[in-house]
Simulated assay, not measured.
Amino acid sequence: MQSRTMKHETALPITPPSTVEKKPQVGDRCDERLKPRKLLSQLKKSVSSRKPRLKYRPVLNSVFDLDAFMDSKLSCTSPNHHMDRDAGFIKYALSYSKRMVVVSGAGVSVAAGIPDFRSSEGVFSTENGGSGKDLFDYNRVYGDESMSVKFNRLMVSLFKLSNDCLPTRFHEMLNGFAKDGRLLRLYTQNIDGLDTQLSHLATNVPLAKPIPSTVQLHGSIKHMECNKCLNVKPFDPEIFKCDDGYDSRTEIIPSCPQCEEFETVRRIAGLRSTGVGKLRPRVILYNEIHPEGDFIGEIANNDLKKRPDCLIVVGTSLKIPGVKNICRQFAAKVHANKGIVLYLNTSMPPKNILDSLKFVDLIVLGDCQHITSLL
């Protein structure tokens, strides 16, 4: 009992008694590291950059004639009210979207001087006597020497052409989105490398983490790869045979120098031969297994979880099933997030494509380069 009393008597009060004199506070109560004015300016900047409310949304699968709209601007005639609203809708998407996904095709590079594939002037129509598509079929290309030579000729031609061309205004616009941190990902079907030569659209080859801004769905003409050791090197047009004449310096399908070096070492060491691989342009062809397909699928699934608020499908007819599936999934996710889905092409997409995507807000017909003028 005594110990309890002593504990009670010696217990300190929760608050100091009124007779205790409080010491005056020394210095400013605010931490000198905090700068209220700076914080206030940052807050104002954040509020001013907030995404404004979308006041107009077209009916799904509405069509906007971009070329006609630009012609009316150049001729100083007033476009109709409906076209003005659609142009404003596109401008809103490009100006305020913060997690944009872009799926691009060959139409983006046409203005740079690189032919597309499926138009009347495209590679499929002009190469190999009008059967240019066969030059992108793995079984045809590597099952016949004459087709291999034609394939080499086409790859070398596209490589040299891409080196002479510069990125388009549309490429530059996407690079600006990436610089501002508003481009979640560019999934490009193009093998010309015009997009990836821009600083903020750079990629890594082979594809690896950390995931770059640009994912090349069909590879790149800028690189070649050994089919055995998987060594990736810059494309060398001088080692691929491109005509029927004799040339000891070139092979139809060149041998891999790294594999040959390994074989030399193994032979000196008395080890058995494991074979020498062959070099080929690092371009994905029809009827072959995509070496990075699973990884690209993983990237797309992760991007779907990041709440994309805008999908732009541009310069592609979506004839490749895998690419169409990527667009379908992103269109559904963007629509669920109350975002915007734009389809940009020179021709109207077929009904089965629209039925697959389901949630296209606006079909923009015309030269995609004109989109940059809306900004």
Rank of each mutant, 00 (worst) to 15 (best):
R4M: 11
L66E: 01
S356N: 10
G193S: 03
Q42E: 12
S146Q: 10
M155I: 08
S347C: 13
R282K: 06
S373R: 14
A208R: 11
A178P: 01
D247Y: 08
R85P: 06
L12C: 03
L365N: 15
G322E: 05
Y142W: 10
D65S: 10
E292V: 08
K160R: 11
N204V: 13
K44D: 08
V283Q: 00
H8L: 13
Q2E: 13
L217W: 02
L184S: 12
K98T: 10
D247W: 07
M348S: 11
E251P: 03
T10V: 12
R249G: 15
S148D: 08
V26C: 11
F177Q: 10
S125N: 06
K241A: 15
I253D: 01
D180Y: 07
M1H: 09
S125I: 06
I284N: 00
I191M: 05
G181Y: 14
P16L: 15
S62V: 07
M155W: 01
C327R: 01
I312W: 03
E21F: 12
I289G: 06
Y187V: 06
V141A: 01
T214G: 00
R53K: 11
R307D: 09
V156D: 01
V47Y: 13
Q197N: 06
L304H: 09
A202L: 09
Y343V: 07
G181I: 10
L285Q: 02
D244C: 07
K7V: 04
P281I: 05
L166E: 09
S97G: 12
T19D: 07
R267M: 09
D137C: 11
F69I: 06
I90R: 03
Q369Y: 06
I252A: 05
A269M: 15
G297Y: 02
T77P: 04
S213V: 01
P237V: 04
R37K: 12
L354R: 15
I211E: 05
L344N: 12
N80A: 12
A111Q: 08
F177V: 03
D309K: 04
E121C: 13
C310E: 02
D309V: 03
A11N: 11
S220W: 00
G88L: 09
I114P: 00
L304I: 09
G193E: 00
N163I: 00
K55R: 14
E172H: 09
Q2I: 15
T10R: 11
L39G: 14
G113P: 01
N128L: 10
G113E: 08
S3N: 07
L184N: 02
G275Y: 07
A93E: 01
L342G: 01
F159R: 03
A11R: 11
R85D: 14
T5P: 04
R53P: 05
K91S: 13
D367K: 00
L43F: 13
T19V: 14
A202T: 14
R182T: 10
S162H: 00
N80P: 07
S104T: 01
L184I: 05
F330L: 07
K23I: 14
M1F: 09
